[in-house]
């Protein structure tokens, strides 16, 4: 049994911090895109127009019932066949956005359905269009209602981003694997990035709560 030697971790600390920054960036991009997909998906689903509803339902079912790793590989290997060549990090963002988006649609839809009918009727009686009612009246209270669930989904998305190392996207796990394969210090490296992932989750959680306090904290 080898002696533990964290010297290697300290030696390559800058690389690990770079990995933290890249994972934060990757996750933030994934979160923002999945929120956008979630809101647009719910807006399409709400129209009651089958041509808009059906693709949303198919998308949610497809994504929620297949593994993320397979979705990632599919994008990574299938897109080039269609002539679309993207670097692994962009592919990872798209995969995270699609996967997180499908879950966000389900969560946000629950929030929208929790809005009392009277709110929508009040908007309609004032002459607002259904798009305006969704954007100006329904959306903020709906997001507020499901914000804790959405936040934990986004933390999950952040942690899932480590899977993107399997297509060599630039992020923390990928950097850790590189250091490990060059130094064979598996325990030290993975012990350290466990702590770093905790830090990342905490940072994302803090950011999400502060956004929640700013935008969803009206008295109720």
């Amino acid at each position: 049994m080898n002696q533990l030697d964290f010297g290697i971790v300290i030696e390559r600390w800058d690389e690990l911090l770079h990995g933290v920054a890249l994972t934060l960036a990757l996750s933030t991009a994934g979160i923002v895109c999945s929120l956008i997909i979630g809101v647009i998906g719910v807006a399409m689903h709400r129209t009651k127009n089958p041509l808009l509803q059906a693709p949303v339902i198919a998308f949610v079912e497809l994504i929620r019932n297949t593994p993320f790793l397979i979705q990632l590989f599919f994008l990574f290997f299938a897109l080039p066949l269609l002539g679309v060549r993207l670097n692994p990090t962009i592919t990872a963002i798209i995969a995270l956005a699609i996967n997180g988006g499908a879950y966000s649609i389900e969560i946000i839809r629950g929030g929208v359905e929790s809005i009392p009918r009277g709110q929508i009727e009040a908007g309609a009686a004032l002459g607002l269009s259904s798009t305006q009612i969704f954007r100006d009246i329904v959306l903020i209270p709906a997001l507020r209602a499901i914000y804790p669930a959405l936040s934990s989904q986004f933390i999950l998305l952040t942690l899932t981003s480590s899977v993107c190392s399997s297509i060599s996207a630039s992020e923390l796990t990928h950097f850790a694997q590189r250091i490990e394969s060059e130094t064979f210090r598996s325990f030290e490296v993975y012990f350290t990035i466990t702590g770093l992932y905790l830090l990342i989750s905490w940072l994302i959680m803090t950011a999400l709560s502060s956004i929640g306090r700013r935008h969803f904290s009206y008295p109720n």
């Binding site: 009277g118 009040a122 009686a125 002459g127 607002l128 100006d136 009246i137 209270p141 009206y218 109720n220």
Partner: peptide, 30 residues
């Protein structure tokens, strides 16, 4: 609907908007 105002039993004010914005929203949007 532009000609008809309505007041509901359960008020149905928009909880995320200040009173002034509850009143000005439709003026701006409609």
């Amino acid at each position: 609907r532009r000609e008809v105002g309505m007041v509901f039993q359960s008020f149905n004010l928009f909880p995320h908007l200040k009173i002034i914005d509850n009143c000005s929203l439709a003026l701006r949007r409609v």
